[in-house]
Design a protein around this nucleic acid. Structure first.
Lengths: 192, 192, 192, 192
DNA sequence: TATGAATGAGCTTTCATTCAT
DNA sequence: CATGAATGAAAGCTCATTCAT
């Protein structure tokens, strides 16, 4: 059944988030899931496959959270803010613990990296880029290449999450202000 | 002698960058350094201590690259661009391989994380913040909190590096354009 | 199953007795037991735990060798002789090899020492002391404190075993005479 | 110089007694002695050689403590008591710590065992045996073989020390009573 | 399908000993 | 003689994975 697969996946996400990927043993996952060690291998090829599946589930949840209806009626600033909001608050659910662990492995595992890039990051960029191009066309004053602008925005979001993880207390305190601040900054700059 | 310490550290940086931290064995480091396994422990307490030392050397090189004379004569845009340039190109020396491996461990090792935050990130933010505050005072139109603005900028830089590592080909192709693009974007926004 | 645990324990006792505790590797034990190295750790926490288990088995066998029925019908000399006999001949089964190795570790390992004292020596003393006290009350001429007398007797037995281990050839030749000789000596002294 | 040899030997005895033989490293000994690691090997062939030398020094001190003049004027009981006293109190100087560690190694190291037997135990037995034989001839009622009697006595002393080491609190409390008690017990028995 | 005992490769670290200085 | 850096073999233990039941 798929329910047991999910049961195992939930357990894996929980213990990976709590203890990290490498320190966590298959036995830890099995205990948490309430199954035997061997059972895990009936649903997943390897310990790493668990991580792939977790990443895949992240993709699904990331994709599904945005309601197409709302999007259509939003202005550019609203879209930027919404994107920032989604990106900053969805992985915050467990205080970035799972994100932290998964990102650590992504940086070091080539296949995981490809998966993340092709399935999550790239699609997000491709989806957003037309909006920026369109915006650029409507604002001829802007000299910044839309392709770089999108990446700067997604990079800022990613980098802010990492800085939060690293322990920046000001970010922790002001997290809720970021969507607006980032949207303003991105559209108007600091001025000058 | 300190030369042997450096010899070991260089070897460690090389093989860590090539194979990752965990997959690399002490024997790999020793072979690369041309010393016996045990010799490494005459200079470092543990395998992890090697990583700490590598991070510390990163800190030193990061701190030493900026010339105070140049800084004094620069305008705000020049400073922003210089910062971006430094941050984007210094770790690019080995195509981010070492940065990638170290960052992976940082995300997962609390002590390493603290070291990075306290010795590298925090000092950089504290150094830059006054410039942004001063700039904000001179440009009353700006509504963005300087503290968040600095973090957005450093976050963008960090996030762009990671997106590059993840395999974004457009970033790889346009890397040289980023300092100017980011400086413009940061100061003027995409317009609107 | 508990049979595999015993299989490992027997193997450990054998190779420890033959080669000593420290010189014996886990691999030696595993080979002798016909299992993989890791299997040992499914049954015992550590190499030292093997020694604890061996000592515990000694305790069991020491406790079980005495038949309560016989005891009730014996006179004091018979009891003393029986005790001496048990103590001198039970560990002689493998020519004191295992006793030698275990005692060596006992002297140096605090936990093992406590275990031996609390589970083997102390109980034996507590069991014997009443007999000596009773005997002392029936023989008012005796000036020796029963508590010291028991310890002198058990000490003599222990010391004789060690002297045998050390290589005293006369003891080796006359081992069979000891129970009687010691019983006589203990009750009547050398005379005077 | 022989003074440095002694300096090293004292250091070794101290740290061996404190930490045990195997847990103690050559570096520990060197630090305690205030010399370099390598220096130790100018005076001793190996770590084990240190233990041999320590045992040899024990032999010297054991042999030198008895004053021949006193001996000649003593009666049998006095001699027995003196022997017990010497044997029980000389190694108590450091609460048996060194004795404990050395005895542990003796049990496990064949050469050390031979040395102890041939140089310490055997000579003591050979020295004492004539006295017992003579005593036996003067007391025809005694049925105990003098050779076994000496060994029972030395065994009792050895065994009592070990029982003390094992943690017998009654022995610790009554240690001072042992010479008299043991002498009485040995000569008269518990009565009957 | 579920189990969990068995596997055994693999790794970090220690430390007695050597020897060039 | 003294030094102490260098050596490198050696070993306990872990854990992902397998497979007979």
């Amino acid at each position: 059944m798929s329910s047991k697969r999910n049961q195992i996946l939930n357990a894996a996400a929980k213990v990976f988030a709590a203890n990290g990927f490498h320190p966590t043993t298959i036995r830890d996952v099995a205990r948490e899931a309430g199954v035997a060690d061997g059972t895990i291998y009936n649903y997943f090829d390897s310990k790493t496959a668990l991580l792939f599946a977790i990443l895949d589930r992240m993709r699904e949840s990331a994709a599904s959270t945005i309601d197409p209806h709302e999007l259509a009626e939003m202005d550019f600033r609203g879209l930027v803010k919404l994107y920032v909001q989604q990106a900053l608050f969805v992985p915050k659910a467990d205080n970035f613990e799972l994100f932290r662990v998964v990102m650590s492995e992504i940086l070091v595992n080539k296949d995981l990296r490809s998966l993340y890039h092709e399935r999550i990051l790239q699609p997000a960029l491709l989806q957003a880029e037309p909006l920026f191009t369109q915006w650029a066309e409507q604002h001829p004053g802007s000299t910044v290449d839309p392709a770089l602008a999108v990446r700067a925005l997604s990079g800022a979001v990613l980098g802010l999450i990492i800085q939060h993880i690293l322990g920046d207390e000001l970010l922790a305190a002001r997290w809720a202000d970021l969507p607006d601040a980032l949207a303003d900054l991105f559209i108007h700059g600091v001025g000058g």
